[in-house]
Design a protein around this nucleic acid. Structure first.
Ligand code: ZN
Ligand code: ZN
Length: 501
DNA sequence: ACGTGCGGGTTTG
DNA sequence: CAAACCCGCACGT
């Protein structure tokens, strides 16, 4: 049935016609064109000029210089077709480049509780062969024709895939580094889909094959296997409701780029629960969940006052100006990705900050501002190595180590000796007892609605950087001995000191 | 590194 | 012959 292109009386042209009619009505670009269809785009349509598609289409030689032909590469799925409790499944974008695509295959499933491997689910939507796209340019229009109906889920969006690639995800952990100007530009250009803290993290420590904003490593508390796409036949293909994103959701309650939940669930230890933070502070669908302290006795000891002095060294660096909260936040972002650690000892992570904690003016308002919360988030993420979302440390190809999380038992570490801040923090975050305690020791968060995330700060940083063309505040150092964290930087990668002693 | 387009070449039906 | 596919090359980002 797919083998014959249905006659469509409304279309009076075929891509192979010797002459194509002059078209006065144009179609809006269809990223996910499927089925036998013919579309006419304006000659100045950028997407059309790029012959782009949401589907992973690769060029194929039809020995016809006038018509560009592309065929579908299918989708990259988990060999076990694992499913998250939410119902999400894996559907990565196959690389167009043959070499890169071969490298993708066989990589561990991004679902860290799944032992599956990534494999290509080939497209057989056109007579058992891949769906084909044809592009033909005329003076006034770009003609597009598709043949076949994809028998597989949609891969992740190209923009997502490109963003991850351009930001260097998947590479081994490197010393902290500022984004390049080009990366900043891309961040801005992609700002609709990107959110800054994960971007910084992605750039530096994206170890899983998850898309930047839909990493499921963190969601996955249970693991199951589904067979939805185990067979390629169109009959077994269920064009389910949820092929929009990297994880297909089969759960109506699950939300993907459609709505967002206000649930914020940050359980760091028995002291702090962020669930009362409103969604405009933490952005939607950020769900934090620390299931278990890494080391129960360490939790008790991990009080700054009682910690060994090596845990936190606030002595170095010089503050040259007073920061407003916003400035501090920007500085913080910038410096967190600075490259200072390049020439530092391996066992230290370097952060830049004011040596005088009173100048970290988070106490200007009695209640915590959004910047405060952002700052907290940054601290949680970078000082405590609590990622914005769970991830894998890619130590070697096909060898992932899971990040785990240190305990946070003392808000003084977040706010120094500023008692106002400490009190504010504890007032706000101690209201609810630690609830969702379990023993998986995983910090959980997910980004389902990244478009709602406030990326203003990073954009400001980037714009600033693009103007000044140099790092700001680089001379300010706050050295934090990472023995507080569970990660040890050995010069090449981070090791988890708890699970990898 | 990867996406993209080109084009020579091979294989199959 | 068409179609699918392989491969290397060039170029841009
Ligand atoms: Zn899997
Ligand atoms: Zn397809």
């Amino acid at each position: 049935m797919n083998c014959r292109v249905p006659y469509n009386s409304s279309q009076d042209w075929d891509i192979n016609d010797s002459t194509i009619p002059r078209i006065s009505e144009y179609d809006g670009f269809s990223e996910w064109a499927d089925g036998h269809c013919r579309l006419v785009y304006r000659a100045d349509s950028e997407e059309a000029k790029r012959h782009s598609s949401g589907w992973a289409m690769r060029n194929t030689n039809n020995h016809n210089v006038h018509i560009l032909k592309k065929s579908c590469l299918g989708v990259l799925v988990c060999s076990l077709r694992c499913t998250l409790p939410s119902g999400d499944t894996v559907h990565l974008r196959p690389a167009i480049c043959d070499k890169a695509r071969k490298k993708q295959q066989g990589k561990p499933c991004p679902n860290r509780q799944c032992s599956g491997r990534l494999e290509i689910l080939a497209c057989r939507g056109h007579c058992g062969y891949p769906v084909t796209h044809f592009w033909r340019h005329t003076e006034h229009a770009i003609f597009f024709q598709a043949k076949g109906i994809h028998d597989h889920p949609k891969p992740e969006a190209k923009s997502t895939s490109e963003a991850r690639r351009s930001l260097g995800s998947g590479r081994r952990l490197m010393p902290l580094r500022e984004p390049t100007k080009r990366q900043c530009r891309e961040i801005i250009q992609n700002s609709r889909i990107l959110n800054p803290p994960p971007l910084i993290n992605d750039q530096e420590k994206n170890y899983c094959s998850c898309p930047p904003f839909e990493c499921i490593c963190i969601q996955n508390l249970n693991h199951s296997v589904n067979h939805q796409y185990q067979h390629h036949s169109p009959a077994s293909y269920q064009p389910a409701q949820n092929l929009e994103s990297y994880w297909s959701s089969q759960d109506g309650n699950h939300i993907h780029n459609q709505q967002f939940s206000n649930d914020i669930n940050v359980n760091l230890n028995n002291q702090y629960d962020f669930s009362n933070i409103s969604a405009d502070l933490f952005q939607p669908e950020e769900i934090f969940q620390l299931d278990q302290p890494i080391k129960p006795d360490f939790v008790q000891q991990n009080d700054i006052a009682r910690s060994p002095p090596t845990l936190l060294d606030l002595g170095s660096g010089t503050i040259h100006r007073e920061f407003k909260t916003e400035e501090y936040w920007q500085q913080n972002i910038t410096n967190l990705v600075s490259d200072d650690s390049n020439n530092s000892s391996n066992s230290r992570l370097y952060f830049n900050s004011s040596p005088d904690n009173s100048q970290i003016s988070l106490n200007n308002s009695p209640a915590l501002s959004q910047n405060d919360v952002n700052y907290i988030g940054t601290k949680l993420e970078d000082v405590y190595n609590i990622p914005k979302y769970e991830y894998f440390n890619q130590i070697q190809d096909n060898d992932y180590k899971c990040g785990q999380f240190p305990e946070i038992s003392d808000s003084k570490f977040l706010f120094g000796e500023d008692t106002n801040l400490v009190n504010n923090f504890e007032t706000h975050y101690n209201k609810n007892a630690y609830k969702n305690y379990n023993f998986d020791s995983r910090f959980v968060e997910k980004y389902d609605a990244p478009q709602f995330v406030d990326y203003t700060a990073i954009l400001n940083v980037c714009e600033n950087k693009m103007v000044t063309n140099e790092a700001i505040f680089n001379e300010l150092d706050l050295k934090i001995n990472n023995s507080l964290s569970n990660f040890h930087y050995n010069g090449e990668s981070f090791e988890n000191l708890v699970t990898q002693p």
